[in-house]
């Protein structure tokens, strides 16, 4: 089966992840949406690597994983800090940015 189908799969996963970010108020859930988007991108990279028959794409995916791991660490730390300060992790709560 054509590996391009995996790219299509990646697109669908990306759309689901982005919809989760837009729709969910729970910061952790939204964050998981972000993770899903990153993984969808990884899947696309690996699929393209397979299509081209090279492993550079896999290395790129590897890098994305490393960065995602770092991002998760910092992101969760921020969520915890916010939770300590506000006793909530709802994304709608901190509305100080309102103009």
């Amino acid at each position: 089966m054509d590996p391009v189908n995996f790219v299509i799969l990646a697109s669908i996963l990306f759309a689901i992840g982005s919809a989760a970010v837009l729709l969910r108020r729970n910061a952790i859930v939204a964050f998981m949406g972000v993770e899903l988007m990153l993984n969808a991108a990884n899947l696309a990279l690996v699929a393209f690597a397979r299509i081209h028959g090279e492993i550079d794409g896999q290395v790129m995916a590897f890098f994305v994983m490393v960065v995602a791991a770092a991002e998760v660490v910092v992101g969760l730390a921020i969520i915890i800090a916010v939770f300590r300060a506000r006793q909530t992790i709802s994304l709608d709560e901190p509305a100080e940015l309102k103009g």
Binding site: V7, I8, S11, F14, I16, L22
Partner: peptide, 16 residues
Amino acid sequence: AFFAAGGLGAFLVSLI
């Protein structure tokens, strides 16, 4: 969210 995410997915799929 529905139109943006769905549109993005549909757009990417049709493109590929």
